[in-house]
Amino acid sequence: MESIIMRRFAGSDSAEELTTLLHRAYADHAAAGLVFFASYQSPEDTLSRLDRGECWIALEQETIIGSVTVTGAYGTPPGYPSSADAGSFWQLAVDPARRGTGLGHRLLTLAETRIAALGASRVVIDTSSQATDLLAWYSRRGYASIGTWRWDVTNYDSVVLAKNLAV
């Protein structure tokens, strides 16, 4: 893990490489029939999603092996169960070959730290109600369900999860 560098995504980085990572990272869910947007989004979609926050990438020997995009102000659609003081993150992804190494936890910690630095006292995310592995992973890291939501770019109901950030 010492050879892994975490830094902001830059204009010189490849949206295609990041999109390919996202597709690989979410492929198991897609194979199980859960259509996470990250499993099929285009490089243009990736860039659009990056424009809504700070994208951080994990690099090993100049190859993108992880990512997360964060924001301190999370604009949500009407009815979404979130509070005004919440930030969020999305596109949390780890190369499948790096699973179990702690990289996901490092990216999550980075996301929470950046969200707090951006002024949010709480983080709100959502994931598929059928992704029991992800729900358990987030639960072990202090996230609790606060409601449900249905996005028009997925084929499942989402569980909305929240965690209060340390001040």
Rank of each mutant, 00 (worst) to 15 (best):
Y74I: 04
G142P: 10
L165R: 04
S88L: 08
L92W: 13
A31M: 07
A93F: 13
G104I: 09
A162E: 10
S3A: 14
G142M: 10
A97K: 12
L108V: 09
H29C: 13
R49M: 04
I5V: 15
T113E: 09
I65T: 11
D133C: 00
R114Q: 14
N164V: 10
R49G: 05
E16W: 00
L59R: 02
R140G: 13
M6P: 08
E54K: 03
T127E: 02
R140N: 12
T71F: 03
Y80S: 06
Y80F: 09
Q41T: 01
G100W: 12
L47P: 02
V94P: 12
V167F: 10
S3Q: 15
E44D: 08
L18G: 00
I125K: 08
D157C: 11
M6D: 07
E62W: 01
G100L: 13
I57E: 04
S83T: 08
H23F: 04
I65R: 11
Y26T: 08
S83C: 05
W137T: 00
H23I: 04
G119I: 05
D157S: 13
A136V: 04
D157F: 06
R24D: 15
A25Q: 09
L18H: 05
L110C: 13
V68A: 04
V159P: 10
R52I: 07
L135Q: 11
V167C: 12
A131S: 14
L92P: 13
L107R: 15
G104H: 11
G79E: 00
W149D: 09
L161V: 01
S128N: 11
E60M: 12
A166W: 01
R150C: 14
W137V: 05
G79K: 01
A30I: 06
L108T: 08
R99Q: 12
A144K: 13
T101Y: 10
T109R: 14
P96C: 12
L47S: 07
H29G: 15
V68M: 07
V160N: 06
L134E: 01
Y143I: 11
G87S: 01
Q41W: 03
S158E: 08
R122L: 05
R141E: 11
S48R: 12
G119R: 06
P77F: 07
R122A: 07
G100E: 12
P81K: 04
R7D: 07
T132G: 02
R8D: 03
T63K: 15
S39L: 01
W151V: 14
T63A: 15
R24H: 15
